[in-house]
Design a protein around this nucleic acid. Structure first.
Length: 420
RNA sequence: GUGAGCGUAGCUCAGUUGGCAGAGCCCCUGACUGUGGAUCAGGUGGUCGGGGGUUCAAAUCCCCUCGCUCACCCCA
């Protein structure tokens, strides 16, 4: 082994890219259908953007950022998530001055410095949408429906939307109530949850510690401590989801790990992925734009992990493109035939036919074997006999029939067959 | 950052108390002067993750190190 790839990164080979492209295509199709336009922002930004946008106290910022100093001494960070960069771009390009309403989506790699594990990599791919400028619950519902349709388009079936509201201005008061409830029980909890009590008590609600969960079963729920406005907002989102026929469950323990969320938060989980069963997550972030220096522009969005979507598709045996890579394989017999074959091959390709030939001068048998493995429907045989008569033999690999066609007509005859 | 498991051919893996480094798949050639899926024969391919130690002898035992995997934390 010479030089190995960096830990937590992967090479996606052509076979891997079939599934990858399928998911990316679904993202482009579904998001465009919902009225979103693609945006591409840099893969790294000034570190400050993420610190201010995501929140200093979050795990992402405090221990999971891939941060470097560039040659000019500036601290830059490989983007750990998509939203902060999109917000920065909107502000820098003055998009909100034209109109606060913008619907954008992105597909691309994200980076987090953490130990790799099934469905979790230091470089991973996400697709997500962001809707700015609309505080109305209609937009929450639209984003949720879009998420549901996206996952559905991939054929992932046991899907559960878990929905919650964590409020906004009323949240500090709620957190105080939660801490009051927890404080007398704190001694019984594990060291990890005790640490979280100070750092981020909300996150104790989705602790994986069974005993902690038991202790918190009767803890005050976010949903019971919302302002009347937040309650109405949440109710409206649910009514709209019902109208759209999108199933969901209200899960009071969904709190999300990023500081910028307000009111609506949600996750989509699926079965069979072990510890990494969250395939999509998102929420409303009405204060984020002002946090990073913009005006009071509300927003809501989600991000889905492509790697986990693909894991889920594989786990559930979703069929992923059985189409052969080639339409025609050109077999040559004799060294003197290869240049003529190359000419024919080029003509086929120019006519839009996905054609291939052997490049190594292998035996006829080996060439036929390759054609068979490639599952090409047609083989064109060019031997000395054919070329002497200015003809080609076209073999149908399914029924083993062969016919002779004039070389000049080869392309048109095969076009008719391969593009019906 | 913490814990556990695992590193042998391109891939999946055997390798017994330390004693010639193997199989299957893949690939190439042939049996079949110009025709695939089956069968058979032959062939290519290895710093046994790396370094050090013990030993006449190490893939095997000991130490160190690197990497991978899974889990914890957290998250997509």
């Amino acid at each position: 082994m010479s030089i190995a790839k960096v830990r937590g990164t992967r090479d996606l080979l052509p076979d891997d890219m079939i599934a990858q492209q399928r998911v990316e295509q679904a993202a482009h199709d579904v998001f465009a259908r919902f009225g979103y336009g693609e945006i591409r922002t840099p893969m790294f930004e000034r570190t400050e953007l993420f610190v201010r946008g995501i929140g200093e106290g979050t795990d992402i910022v405090s221990k999971e950022m891939y941060t470097f100093e560039d040659r000019g001494g500036r601290s830059v960070t490989l983007r750990p998530e998509g939203t902060a960069g999109v917000v920065r771009a909107c502000l820098e390009q003055n998009l909100f001055k034209q109109s606060p309403v913008h619907k954008l989506y992105y597909v691309g790699p994200m980076f987090r410095y953490e130990r790799p594990q099934a469905g979790r990599y230091r470089e991973h791919y996400q697709a997500g949408i962001e809707a700015f400028g609309v505080a109305d619950p209609l937009m929450d519902a639209e984003v949720l429906v879009c998420a549901y349709e996206f996952v559905g388009a991939l054929g992932i079936k046991p899907v559960e939307i878990r929905l919650n509201s964590i409020g906004n201005e009323e949240r500090p008061a709620y957190i105080e109530k939660l801490k009051e409830y927890i404080r007398p029980r704190l001694a019984e909890m594990g060291a990890r949850d005790q640490e979280r009590f100070e750092a981020n008590p909300l996150r104790m609600l989705d602790s994986k510690d069974a005993h902690t969960r038991e202790l918190l079963e009767d803890a005050p729920k976010t949903a019971d401590h919302l302002s009347p406005e937040s309650v109405e907002h949440f109710d409206a989102v649910r009514r709209l989801l019902d109208r759209a026929n999108v199933p969901y469950v209200v899960d009071p323990y969904i709190v999300r790990g990023l500081d910028y969320y307000t009111r609506t938060v949600f996750e989509i989980t699926t079965a069979g992925l072990g510890a990494q069963d969250t395939i999509l997550g998102g929420g409303r972030y009405d204060d984020l734009v002002s946090e990073v220096g913009g005006g009071p522009v509300p927003g809501i969005g989600f991000a889905a992990g492509l790697d986990r979507l693909i894991l889920a598709m594989r786990e559930q045996d979703v069929a992923i493109d059985e189409r052969p890579k080639h339409d025609v394989y050109v077999v040559t017999i004799g060294d003197d035939t290869r240049e003529t074959a190359f000419e024919a091959l080029t003509a086929l390709r120019r006519a839009g036919i996905r054609a291939e030939m052997d490049h190594q001068g292998r035996s006829v048998r080996a060439q036929m074997k390759t054609a068979n493995q490639l599952r090409v429907p047609y083989v064109v045989v060019l031997g000395e006999d054919e070329i002497a008569r200015q003809e080609a033999t076209v073999r149908d690999m399914d029924d083993q029939s062969q016919e002779t066609v004039p070389l000049a007509e080869l392309t048109s005859r095969l076009s008719a067959r391969t593009n019906p």
